[in-house]
Design a protein around this nucleic acid. Sequence first.
RNA 1: CAGCUGGACCGGACGGUCGCUCGUCGCGAGACGGGAGGAAAGUCCGAACUCCGCAGAGCAGUGUGCCGGAUAACGUCCGGGAGGCCGGGUUCAAGCCCGGCCGACGGAAAGUGCCACAGAAAACAUACCGCCCCGGCCGCAAGGCCGAGGUAAGGGUGAAAAGGUGCGGUAAGAGCGCACCGCCGCCGCAGUAAUGCAGCGGGCAGGGCAAACCCCACACGGAGCAAGACCAAAUAGGGAGGGAGCCUCGGGUUCGCUCGGGGCAGGUGCCGGCUCGGCGCGUCACAACCUCCGGGUAGGUCGCUUGAGCUCCGCAGCAAUGCGUGGCCCAGAGGAAUGACCGUCCUGCGGUAGCAAUACCGCAGACAGAAUUCGGCUUACAGGUCCGGCUGCCAC
RNA 2: GGCGCGGUACCCAAGUGGUAAGGGAGAGGUCUGCAAAACCUUUAUACGUCGGUUCGAUUCCGACCCGCGCCU
Length: 137
Amino acid sequence: MSGDAILPNGSADPSSVGGRAKFPRSSRLLRHADFERVYKEGRRHFAAHMTVFYLRRGDPARLRVGFTVGRGLGGAVERNRMKRRLREAVRLYGVVVDAPVDVVINPKKSLLTADFADLRKDIKRAFEVIEKSVGKP
RNA sequence: CAGCUGGACCGGACGGUCGCUCGUCGCGAGACGGGAGGAAAGUCCGAACUCCGCAGAGCAGUGUGCCGGAUAACGUCCGGGAGGCCGGGUUCAAGCCCGGCCGACGGAAAGUGCCACAGAAAACAUACCGCCCCGGCCGCAAGGCCGAGGUAAGGGUGAAAAGGUGCGGUAAGAGCGCACCGCCGCCGCAGUAAUGCAGCGGGCAGGGCAAACCCCACACGGAGCAAGACCAAAUAGGGAGGGAGCCUCGGGUUCGCUCGGGGCAGGUGCCGGCUCGGCGCGUCACAACCUCCGGGUAGGUCGCUUGAGCUCCGCAGCAAUGCGUGGCCCAGAGGAAUGACCGUCCUGCGGUAGCAAUACCGCAGACAGAAUUCGGCUUACAGGUCCGGCUGCCAC
RNA sequence: GGCGCGGUACCCAAGUGGUAAGGGAGAGGUCUGCAAAACCUUUAUACGUCGGUUCGAUUCCGACCCGCGCCU
């Protein structure tokens, strides 16, 4: 447990520089075709509670993140919870990667019961890896 | 008070910081407000709505099936009645009475089919063992054997074998006779009806299965919001027109045109500001190319949430429910919002301290997530509240 | 979200209101120097779960559970 995880009364995390971390719809990956392209042409990064696919894109210089939670991972309640926890973790990390990258995160079943701080560390590490491998082509 | 059981309901509360989504306001930054369930689930029924189909009727098919009511409708709900199970009381017994629970329950004297095994016999009933009588033979006798009959009480088989109980009766028996119960027919009374009750007559017709085919009555067109409507890129393809002249003679004509002969003109696309030039095509026809039109994919918009709506009170009704007045607006996403973290409290369990009330610490708080919308059914569900029934214990 | 199919042994798979085929695999044997192939013999185990109808249900009816497909 590093000290920078969560402060007692829920104030902003150091990693989310600049105050309020948001995660609007424009930063989300929503189109079926986009998902397909990332799966087909993208690279992969494996973490404890998830698998991350990512692909450098052309023109619009924005990071976009999408989530896929399949039927095998549980009922609607559990799948919704996984998606919400992931979204919250990505939001709190802050969408600071500047490269035009599409990212798709596939959770594993352990994500449901994992500690939220661990989850945030997984996300942080994954985005660092992405930045390193894609940031300077 | 405890256990079992039937029904109704709640299913954590309040607050803080950050975020998501919809609405309203605002030029904008943003502000304010709304934001999962009783099952949102399974998709098992019924509707609304939309498109397609359709003269009418019938057949086929599917579903429903005691009676009455409720409802937009239903396979749902409410009330009632046959029937079944359990407990208690009563009777010699069958049975009857009381209470509780269950309750897919039309027709088997319209027809067809199926009832394995066992059993003598399983559906125009039969007679294996047995019981009884008569005749003959044997035997001192008890009785035995053979033959002709009577019988459906008893045994045995089976899920099921020509009503049940009791008394009488008989050679033995049998509705053979009687009483009660059951059954069939007729009639009466009560009830809207299912049905119940009473009377009279008949000793008694008759197996089961229709969640087998079927018959009868009633209902039903098919698909589903990924329905459907509108806008509409790129690419490919479709249609129409231009490209694709003028004059004259003759023939045909539905008077729009068309066919044939002769003469004249030299066109058009791209490159380019224009000319020259180059390249391609064309000169009577399926050209290149240009313009327009329609279908339609990706994508977008609508459908999309005010509705057989919720609720207070009053009235009608046993009830389901209906009527009236007033009040309320209560999620609308679309790779799919309703979340993350924290604090205080609540409930349960465990531990520590304490005689105890209690205090502190730790853990836990179910089933489950709207997807066009309603009415039901079914299934899942920690814990808790209220009302009723039965049993046991204690107190009065 | 809506609609439609199917669950029979370890696997494939027929079937019907009373007894559940068959094949492969497995086991044992023959053959062989040893195996494979071939041939012979063979055991045990199964009707997804729970109710209902029926004397009797894998079969008929209903409700659940699981798997698959189509519409985009």
